[in-house]
Design a binder for these strands. Sequence first.
DNA 1: GATAAATTACTGACCGGTCAGTCATTAATT
DNA 2: AATTAATGACTGACCGGTCAGTAATTTATC
Lengths: 227, 227
Amino acid sequence: MPTFADPAAPDTDDAAASARRPRARRKEARPSELTAAALDLFVEKGFAATRLDDVAARAGVSKGTLYLYFDSKEALFKAVVEEGIVPALAAAEQRFAEYEGSSAELLRSLLLGWWQQIGNTRLGGVPKLIISESRNFPEIAQFYHDRVISRGRSLLRAALQRGVAAGEFRPLDIESCIDVIIAPLLMLTVWRYSLCSCGNDIEPERFLDTQFGILIHGLLAAPEGAR
Amino acid sequence: MPTFADPAAPDTDDAAASARRPRARRKEARPSELTAAALDLFVEKGFAATRLDDVAARAGVSKGTLYLYFDSKEALFKAVVEEGIVPALAAAEQRFAEYEGSSAELLRSLLLGWWQQIGNTRLGGVPKLIISESRNFPEIAQFYHDRVISRGRSLLRAALQRGVAAGEFRPLDIESCIDVIIAPLLMLTVWRYSLCSCGNDIEPERFLDTQFGILIHGLLAAPEGAR
DNA sequence: GATAAATTACTGACCGGTCAGTCATTAATT
DNA sequence: AATTAATGACTGACCGGTCAGTAATTTATC
């Protein structure tokens, strides 16, 4: 069962197989093959500039077939998000609910999890995509806001409140704190999927290190010497 | 030559004037009217999604006229940047060359100047536009990189080096420091021109305050006691 | 100062190419 | 044979760019 979070499972058996057996009928596998292909192209070209002919071709299928499984281009995109990002978010909520360590560790775990399951995978291009196209496709923006952004912010909010309640973090303006936390992460993916490819390179690990350092240093309640 | 008999002269609204006098000939004024209209639409819709018919209409002119003054859509965009952003950059370079105060003040002045002349004007949408479309229009990305980004980074680099050389700032990894400085500014404009319009509001002043605070606190050499 | 001729800013219909979405046909499976 | 997954030619809307034509303005002539 191929998922696009796993780069080790290339399309050797789906698209290529279809190339060998032109009209093979594989009802079960098609949707995920199509969303995987769509993710690649959406991230590379953006939503508007991605042609459904190309998505279908990459999935080893014709455009008509694509329309058997998805009602429209927008529906296809929604499926990509639903399949790729929402599960990661659900997993993070699960981790949060069961967590028992310090809030700083929890926060670190959440952000690191985001980096490993979204930021540093093919899904990392999605935030930039949303930012780029939200004006022209308000319905998509709304969908993403409801399904991802608001849930993600709630998670961060809960983590921060947990830390403040325990006296571990100093009293914070939670909302603007959320912004400050996610801004550099977003920026990183935005950078990666835009100017990076034309001379303005950036080193993710170092950038994140710097930002993490500033963040933790700025949040903690008691500035102890051990830092 | 415009005379006092010209009824369009006292009118501030170019497009409206043209609407009253359909085919009036105003060779001098057209280019700037067109770039102004183009900036509005490019920022609102993006480069690809902006129709030249609309740009022309907003400037009170037909599409054919647009092509009398600009060779292509790309040329129009380049003119927008050349006319709107490059002069502000040149002014900043000028201010830098003549500056004599502290480097912290200089830095503050540069960033504030950016906010007032670019970030907080209609031009503020341009960075997001570039980020959004650089992949699909590499020539535009290259142009913007050469004309704006590299010059802007050079300016920041010089300001930081000035501070380090004077012992005012601690020794810094200049390049990554540049990234850390501009990331939140970029993020602010990106935010403003994308998700903001759909429920995720942000307060620029407060956001910038927070970031400025963190930044200055992190740069200074050793204001008091140990570190 | 009036009129005609020349110039050129401006127009908008048109062209070629693109692409989301449709549907009659074809072929794999049961 | 019946069912249905898959196809790809087709449609209609859209848009960057073109160009033959139109009209505002200037220059030449009387």
